[in-house]
Write a protein that binds this DNA or RNA. Structure first.
Lengths: 165, 165
DNA sequence: AAGATAGTGGTGAATTGTGGGTAACTTTCC
DNA sequence: GGAAAGTTACCCACAATTCACCACTATCTT
């Protein structure tokens, strides 16, 4: 039995703007963290060194490449702000969103409010989350993930069944 | 219950991109493992030498050829991250996923976190799992399989009834 | 038996991550 | 309005790691 596969498109690399992997870096005294070189390369050429940092839904920092952030911006724009909860939601995301560019060594500077929100002191754990980047205090991450896994283990298993192949 | 596989003549053709068989290789001091030549040949030409390694559902390393991984990646990308458990799930998979291309000798490098997760030290047992590749510490595999076979022997038999012809 | 292919180990060059220093710009206070 | 202090951004240099390549040995094939 033969199965013929379609020939592959030219660009059979990982999607651009796809972030995976974890990296342990340090936050220096000036509030700078390194962005992993792999992530910098993952970005499409044009906006190579511009990100938008904002507070995550979890107590961590979310970093979007400009293209992804634009999508979010559009969605927020379309969200009517008649209801109070909508306004609060928009406020949450918008108020702390700060565009920031990598310096020549590939670092970005986190604003003091993001640092205190995410409680990152010295060690910064950077995680690729497919379309965005998360920066965590490692301790915090552990407790959050453990809590979720215990409380929602059933949901977690069903997700794994559905998606992992 | 044992199933014996036919030895393959030169051009005996399994489906392309189908991995079977087991191989005993070694993990060197730099975290490199060889990918069996058969597996490399099994891949369609274009993306021959890029894989994505990630942590398995068992304590082993899973290695996907790029085409298979992209399916997972797309699922993850479409998963809304409004709920905490979704984010935890994405994180689990994405944080350990490392794209890696074979070097000229046909090896890929495993990240330290994957090595410690799978507890592979020197001997690496590589198993073809149809659409992906597993890398095990041989000791670990033995205990895991034995445990499963004892606990779920009924399920195992019914699976065998259903599938083996 | 000889050539080809496959697997293992090591080395050197290039890249990456970290700390610090200096210049420019802002803010504040006199 | 001007000077001083503080803040921000940019740049340089060193250390550590990574990656690409080379060479050797073992195994398989003809």
């Amino acid at each position: 039995m033969w199965v013929t596969f379609p020939t592959f498109q030219k660009n059979m690399t990982l999607n651009k703007d796809t972030f995976t992997g974890e990296y342990q870096y340090s936050l220096d005294s000036k509030g700078r963290v390194n962005i992993p070189a792999k992530f910098r390369q993952a970005l499409s050429k044009k906006n190579q060194n511009t990100f938008v940092a904002t507070r995550g839904q979890d107590p961590c920092v979310w970093i979007y490449p400009l293209t992804e952030w634009k999508k979010i911006e559009d969605e927020l724009r379309n969200l009517s702000s008649v209801s109070g909860i909508h306004r609060t939601f928009i406020r949450q995301i918008a108020r702390s969103a700060t565009p920031s560019t990598c310096d020549k060594q590939g670092r970005i500077t986190l604003s003091p409010s993001l640092i205190s929100f995410s409680q990152i002191d010295k060690n910064a754990l950077i995680i690729g989350m497919i379309n965005k980047i998360e920066i965590w205090n490692p301790e915090t991450l552990k407790t959050v993930d453990e809590k979720n896994m215990i409380e929602d283990s059933i949901e977690l298993n069903s997700l794994a069944d559905k998606i992992v192949i």
